[in-house]
Amino acid sequence: MTTTKTSNAEMRKALWSTFWRSFAANAPWELTRQEATGYAFSMVPSLRVIYRDDPNGKAKALQRHMQFFNITNVLLPLVLGTSIAMEEENHQNPNFDPELINNVKVSLMGPLSAIGDSMFLTTWRVICMGLAIGLCQQGNILGPILFMASYNIVTIAVRWFGLKIGYEEGTKFIQRVSDSNIIQSISDKAAILGMMVVGAMIPTYVVLNSPIKIGTGKAAISLVKTLDQIVPSMLPLIATLIVLWMVRKKWKVAWILVIIVAFSIIGTWLHILAP
C-alpha cells in the first residue's frame, strides 16, 4: 500500500499545489504563531488527497498544522514534504503516533532556519547583489534583472528539490541529516564563503572620505591617502569594526542607525568628513 507514493498522479498534482502555495505562505503571517497559518494553508491540497475519505482526520491534521512554526521561506517546502509523507503514513498506519509529525517539524525549525537565513538571506543574496551592483550603478537595466534571476533560479530549485526530497525520503532524510553532521557542515561552509564576500565588500562599498590635510600649503598631504598607503581602505575597515563593536555590545539597532546618521551630518558640518 505504501509503495504507490509518487506514481500516484493525484498525489503528484497535490504536491505541485503545495509547492505553489508555499510561495504565498507568508501572506497570513502573524505574531503569535508566525508561519503556522501559512503552513496549514500550504498543506491543504495534499491533506485533501490524503484524507479524501476521512474528514475527521483532515480536520485533525489541519489543527495540527496550525501550531506555531517558523522557518526561512526557501526551506519551507522541504519541511512540508516531510510532513506530507508523515501524514500519509498516519492515514495508512493506525499505530502511527501523529504527535511525531509536529515533533519533527519543531526539531527541524531551529537548525534549518539557522542555515537558511545565513545561506540564502545573507550569503547568496549578498553574492547576487555583488554581481549585479556594478551594472546598477551605471543605470543598466540588466543589473536588477541579473540580481533577481541569479537569486531566484537557485532558490526556486532549492524549493522544488526540497519538497521532493522531503516527501520521498520523509523521516529517513531527517534521521540521516541529524545522525551525520550535514547541517552543521553546510552551514560552516556557507559561513566561510559569506565571510569572504563580506570582507571583500568592505573596501568596495563602505565609503568614508575626509578632506583633512596634514601640513599646510603645497606640502599638505591628504589624510586618507596617507592612511591608504599603510592599508588600503583603512577608514572603511575601521568604521566597520567600530560598528561591529557596537553590534556586539548589543546596542539597539535603531540607535546605531541614529549614531551613524548623526556622526555623518556633524562630521560634514565640522568639515572632518566629505561626501
Partner: peptide
C-alpha cells in the same frame, strides 16, 4: 551640510550592514 551629511551616511551605512552580517556568522 545636512544633505551632504546624508550622502556621507549613505557611504557609511553599508558598514552597519556588514557589521550585522558579520555578527550573524561570527566565529
Amino acid at each position: 551640510f545636512v544633505q551632504d551629511g546624508l550622502v556621507v551616511a549613505s557611504g557609511l551605512l553599508p558598514a552597519f550592514g556588514f557589521a550585522l552580517l558579520i555578527q550573524q556568522m561570527l566565529r
